[in-house]
Amino acid sequence: MRIVVIGGTGLIGSRVVSLLTEHGHEAVPASPSSGVNTVTGEGVKEVLEGADVVVDVSNSPSFADDDDVMAFFRAATTNLTEAAKGAGVGHFVALSVIGSDRLPESGYLRAKVAQEELIKGSGLPYSIVRATQFFEFVGAIADGGTEGNVVKLPDAGIQPIAASEVSGAVAKVAAGSPLGGMTEIGGPEVFTMESWVREALTFRNDPREVTVDPEARYFGEKPGPKGLLPDEGAQLGQIKFADWLPANPPRK
């Protein structure tokens, strides 16, 4: 099959392309660097010509402004679904976030819900893969909550997963028949956000103190104990965080 991967040069997309190629598919990475801009529509129709499947693992270039994030996902998804229908694409796959519909105070997660709704309403056969937070972003979460030498985090449960396992799940769905709905994937272990970040910082000899702050937010929201956790029956990865850490030093 010819499978176009939007965001195909990023953390998830590059691995999806590699996995699909290894299994004999023609996987085409598409991103602004390859002349495909889903927000403006530049190159979208051209790259989808002859495609059997389109996979969207792209993300907003900015998280600072809620309106910008919403504008990105609305424009990108509208352009992609319209072009996919025109090209006769038989399967639209998108990566989304577990808990999006439970946390409406988060502008980012509201935008992900809007993306999902546009896909569902497009008339295209589709599959949505909702994932928990990636191991790879533990450092960014710590940095985002840092004030001085203290990391302040919300009292929240989290079930993070290795990006490689998310990529594997997305690639598997892309190579299969449309689900006509959603599937969820999470990591094998449940942490509090505080304990997860503390484990990472301790392993990396980072001296910052990690605390729970009742007023701290995550993407603008207070997730609570279960807001970010997958529902019962979700697919669970096998890579444990303690095994992932030694092979993944923080990026410079």
Rank of each mutant, 00 (worst) to 15 (best):
T183K: 05
V69W: 02
L80W: 07
A114T: 13
G139I: 07
F73E: 01
D155L: 04
I119K: 08
G139A: 08
D68K: 15
A163Y: 04
L95V: 10
S106Q: 01
A114Q: 13
G157E: 01
K112Q: 15
L11D: 09
L11F: 04
V53I: 13
V17D: 01
G121I: 05
G148M: 07
I141D: 04
R204C: 06
A140Y: 05
L20H: 10
G8F: 02
F134H: 04
N37R: 02
G227A: 08
S33D: 10
D155W: 02
R2S: 12
G7A: 08
L228Q: 12
K240M: 10
P178L: 07
A174G: 09
V36D: 10
V170Y: 09
H23P: 03
E147A: 13
A84F: 02
P188K: 00
T81R: 06
A83G: 07
E49F: 01
F191D: 12
N149M: 13
G90V: 05
A142T: 01
L118A: 04
D213C: 00
N79D: 04
V69F: 09
K222D: 06
P32A: 06
E105Y: 04
R110I: 02
A51K: 03
I239D: 09
V69N: 06
E199V: 04
D65W: 04
A94D: 08
V93Y: 12
P214T: 08
E165C: 05
K152I: 09
A30F: 14
G50V: 08
E26I: 02
P249N: 14
L228N: 11
M193N: 03
